[in-house]
């Protein structure tokens, strides 16, 4: 139990807005959960509740073995925050920031100073250690921010969009650090809008929308949930686009998506290469010319969009053969 996050039925309202509407979460010790969702979905509120910054209106949460409402101080000793959840002081130097945080965790001055030096060294900030952090570049500030979360090794770490504003090298460095922490047994809850990041770092993903968890699973399971394989066909003559969509609808398990600017129809299918040959033959028989056709698994982006329905797409979940549903495209 220690080191894990366990939340049941979390509810939080701000005035009329129900920011969280019954969130359940389970993050086993030493694992990474990616909390995925659009802006305003409830990701940040969830983390603020778990980090003792907010009190839930209903529900319970246990973080690192302690109840967040009854023993917030014990929770605070075991967690680290990074990202928009918590700032670094812009008028203090990097070294002063780290020392202050160490002292507030309860380290003696000398231990806090030593730890600050260590972290500055490891995060490649020694050269800038005695400059006000307001002079730092975006990447340097993110590194300092992350170092602040690691002053005492937290058993649970909350990371908010950790890659935002980082150049590719810093991003790889950050990913290494995260993987290293996890291998040492740290539990990590990260929020992200970068699906690549979630794919790379999190073994489990929970998709949040409108204050609820609408899907969870491994990246692979989520991709399967969004319809598995897709057939994508690009027509050579735009006027045949609707005809192609109507035809593909007959083979898909959901209504096809039509990308007009690219002249592309794509539809989730339940079948392999044989289905593909059938589709090609049918298009040929109908006299629809295509420049490209292929089969692929959805990206996590598509999963995300399908689940949160933020894309302007046809949301009717009509099954096989409902070609007419496409007319409003």
């Amino acid at each position: 139990m220690a080191g894990a996050i366990h939340a049941t039925g979390l509810v939080k309202t701000f005035g009329e807005t129900r920011a969280l509407d019954g969130v359940d979460l389970d993050v086993p010790e030493g694992s990474v959960l990616g909390l995925l969702g659009p802006n305003g979905a409830g990701k940040t509120t969830t983390v603020r509740l778990l980090a003792t910054l907010l009190r839930p209106d209903a529900g319970t949460a246990v973080v690192a073995g302690h109840d967040v409402v009854r023993h917030p101080d014990r929770v605070r000793l075991s967690i680290g925050l990074s990202g928009q959840f918590a700032a670094v002081d812009d008028r203090l130097t990097g070294r002063e920031n780290l020392r202050m945080i160490g002292e507030l965790y309860g380290l003696r001055s000398r231990a806090a100073r030593r730890r600050a030096d260590e972290l500055l060294d490891r995060f490649d900030l020694t050269g800038a250690a005695d400059r006000m952090s307001s002079t730092y570049s975006g990447g340097m500030r993110r590194r300092l921010d992350l170092a602040c979360a690691l002053v005492v090794r937290p058993s649970v770490m909350f990371l908010d969009e950790p890659s935002t504003g980082l150049d590719p090298t810093s991003r790889l460095m950050l990913w290494d650090i995260i993987e290293d922490l996890v291998s040492q047994g740290t539990t990590i809850l990260l929020t992200t809008q970068y699906l690549e990041e979630a794919d790379r770092l999190a073994r489990d993903i929970a998709v949040v929308d409108h204050g609820r968890i609408i899907a969870r699973g491994t990246p692979r399971e989520l991709k399967a949930q969004a319809g598995g394989q897709r057939v994508e066909a690009v027509v050579s003559r735009r006027e045949q686009l609707d005809a192609a969509a109507a035809l593909l609808a007959g083979y898909g398990i959901r209504t096809p998506d039509v990308d007009r600017p690219r002249g592309m129809v794509s539809v989730p299918v339940d079948g392999g290469v044989r289905l593909m040959t059938q589709v090609i033959a049918a298009l040929d028989a109908a006299g629809i010319e295509i420049t490209d056709i292929g089969m692929r698994r959805p990206t996590l982006d598509e999963v995300f969009l399908a689940l949160t329905e933020v894309a302007p797409r046809d949301t009717s979940r009509t099954a096989v053969g409902a070609g007419a549903a496409n007319e409003k495209e």
Partner: peptide, 20 residues
């Protein structure tokens, strides 16, 4: 990069005490 190569320090002053 291994952030945990050196063991992170353990807080000596416990929350709730007057000294802290």
């Amino acid at each position: 990069m291994n952030v945990s190569a050196t063991a992170p320090p353990v807080p000596e002053l416990r929350p709730g005490t007057a000294a802290k």
